[in-house]
Design a protein around this nucleic acid. Sequence first.
DNA 1: GCAAAAGTGTTCGCTCTACACCCATGG
DNA 2: CCATGGGTGTAGAGCGAACACTTTTGC
Lengths: 236, 236
Amino acid sequence: MKNINIWLDQIQNDYKAAVSVDCVIFGYDDQNLKILLSKCDMPPFENQFSLLGDIVHPNETTDEAAYRVLVERTGISNIYLEQVQAFSAPNRHPLGRVITISYYSLIQIDQTFLDHVAAHPDLILKSVNEVHTLAFDHKLIMDTCLTKLQKNLREHPLGFKLLPSRFTLLQLQNLYESVLGITLDKRNFRRKMNTLGILKESGEIESDVPHRPAKYYYFDETAYHDRVELGFSFGF
Amino acid sequence: MKNINIWLDQIQNDYKAAVSVDCVIFGYDDQNLKILLSKCDMPPFENQFSLLGDIVHPNETTDEAAYRVLVERTGISNIYLEQVQAFSAPNRHPLGRVITISYYSLIQIDQTFLDHVAAHPDLILKSVNEVHTLAFDHKLIMDTCLTKLQKNLREHPLGFKLLPSRFTLLQLQNLYESVLGITLDKRNFRRKMNTLGILKESGEIESDVPHRPAKYYYFDETAYHDRVELGFSFGF
DNA sequence: GCAAAAGTGTTCGCTCTACACCCATGG
DNA sequence: CCATGGGTGTAGAGCGAACACTTTTGC
């Protein structure tokens, strides 16, 4: 163990770094996986987009900082948030040493959210597969978070967090297909959801659709928690 | 996007934090999962044990810092290392704000390593299941890393990194049983390893054992990489 | 009546599980 | 000869994959 005075000295002096959080905010619009970005005005990245982030304040955890960024920038509270990993290349930030802790979060793209984005010209919602370059190392962060989202989506019932509280089975299937980049068999998918027992019919059905109306389902949290103890996997 | 001057100000002044790495170093001694710890001399944790860690230097990544700690403290290079997550409770360190990035690593407990530990009185090797309390929030970090190790062990061929380069199938099975806390069927386990095709016989066998000598196997890295493309799981 | 999505069962192959005995060696 | 772990095969169950047609609605 290193001498305490060396520690004290390093902690209080030039071994300090700025620590930030960066949030990869995913949404889904019944077509594509989207990401919420911000216009960047910092040289040399002017006119590029960046993730939503901020420096971590002295009296908050990184989780709290990420949550604060989400609430401040999106107006939404009660957001699903998951820490992904730290990025710490010494030259990743033009203003000096900034180590960032990345998070991804899942939001529902509803009209309120779209209005919020429209009212804030610095915000933009892009399709993930159309994002080819971002400020800083944010493209790398986005890709890392996307990979982690895909993995978690196969192992945990997260898809619901990207959908409205009531949704049809086709919406849910399309979501998995589009985020995971796979195709699924309709009958197998529906049987799977059925046997998992974590969805309940809401009793409502679609209206004004030019085809047979679909039933609306919702995610049954308590049934899920009963199941999760014995291991859980979607199996695709 | 926040004004650049605010950023600059915060980065350069009191929003800075010390950033450290903490390494959960796992080993396996043919009996139990072990962890390498260090005696702690920092109040109020005197006479407790802590993880091996250090502050991150200005010109290195956290990966590099973790690797540096491992080489400096264990004498081993070429160690498997995986970032787990950041811990950032504002009061987690008595000397001030220290955000830590945790890593776990897997080492082989051979005679060289045991000699190294014996030669350094500040180091101690303990059975993971006998560690009930550690300095700082290191018990929480250890538990988090153990959970992640168990998950990764089921999904990736990591077990080999805890064993000598040549090992018997029983050694391997015992490792999985003891780290995952499960029991496995001998025949099914052997068939599984066989069909995965990632083990090769070395041609050598045990000697001086009071029973039929076992074959030594080694992990066939290239066969694994051929397989891994199509998804990989041990299925237990 | 037509376009468009909803909804529904069966078969096949693979994988996991459970289970018991003989073999080779050292002492 | 005995104790110890090494090493082997088979049968049953459950799960994922493949696959096609009828139903309901709006226009």
